[in-house]
């Protein structure tokens, strides 16, 4: 059992590298996307609010696998997409499809988290900002958003761990992430038990690290809790 792992462990780390790239890119894109979605969700204009609500409903109401397949296998149904400039090197590549699907999916969850955070910012903070004469714009960037993120931080930690887990679905569209590598090695060696145990160990260590990282971040950003 151990010999197989000694023989193949570099492959696992190659897979882990791709998993990390997928997760890193998707966290960043997802977070950036979640800002306008959350703002739209809180907007006073009804159609805008409706649009954000539908976005969130669609991405939270369907499995990530459907979203991934819709993008990767679905788009090739349209000749116009295949002829567009976005096709070559971008929409035809499983890597970018995975990044888009994972980050769009994650943006829906992150928007909900952010909305919860924004709603939880104490009223007095906003009043204080208005009292010192801040414009709505400055008020949002300096007072509301930083505090909303701080309040929502534990939920972000969960979301990133969920994202690591959904990145494993990339293996279903031929990507060689940690799960993809493991599946290939299993069919090559016929030894599923050690392979999945080792992959599982790597995933758990990764998620443990992320959870610890957020704990440290929390301690750093929320000092009064530990005073």
């Amino acid at each position: 059992m151990v010999e197989v792992l000694l023989q193949y462990y570099p492959e696992f780390f190659k897979g882990l590298r791709l998993t990390l790239i997928l997760v890193g890119l998707s966290v960043c894109i997802g977070f950036l996307l979640s800002l306008p979605i959350a703002l739209a969700r809180l907007s006073n204009i009804r159609p805008v609010r409706r649009l954000a609500k539908s976005y969130i409903f669609f991405f939270r109401g369907t499995p990530m696998l459907v979203q991934l397949f819709l993008l990767y296998y679905g788009l090739s149904q349209f000749e116009s997409v295949k002829e567009s400039i976005l096709w070559k090197g971008f929409l035809e590549s499983p890597f970018w499809c995975a990044v888009i699907a994972i980050s769009f999916n994650s943006a829906a969850y992150m928007a909900e988290i952010l909305v919860g955070g924004i709603r939880a910012v104490p009223r007095g903070q906003i009043e204080a900002g208005l009292a010192v004469g801040m414009s709505a714009h400055v008020l949002f960037w300096r007072i509301t958003l930083p505090q909303a993120i701080r309040i929502a931080l534990p939920n972000y930690s969960n979301e990133v761990i969920f994202l690591v887990k959904s990145s494993a679905l990339a293996s279903t569209i031929t990507l060689m992430d940690l799960t993809g590598v493991t599946r290939t090695l299993v069919s090559k060696t016929y030894m599923p038990v050690p392979m999945y145990l080792f992959a599982g160990l790597l995933y758990i260590s990764l998620n443990y690290t992320i959870a610890k990282f957020f704990k440290i971040l929390e301690r750093w950003l929320i000092p009064q809790r530990h005073a």
Binding site: I161, K165, S167, T179, V186, P192, Y196, G200, Y203
Partner: peptide, 10 residues
């Protein structure tokens, strides 16, 4: 801590 798909495959 494990991806569901890994648990299913394993």
């Amino acid at each position: 801590g494990l991806p569901e798909i890994v648990i299913v495959l394993a």
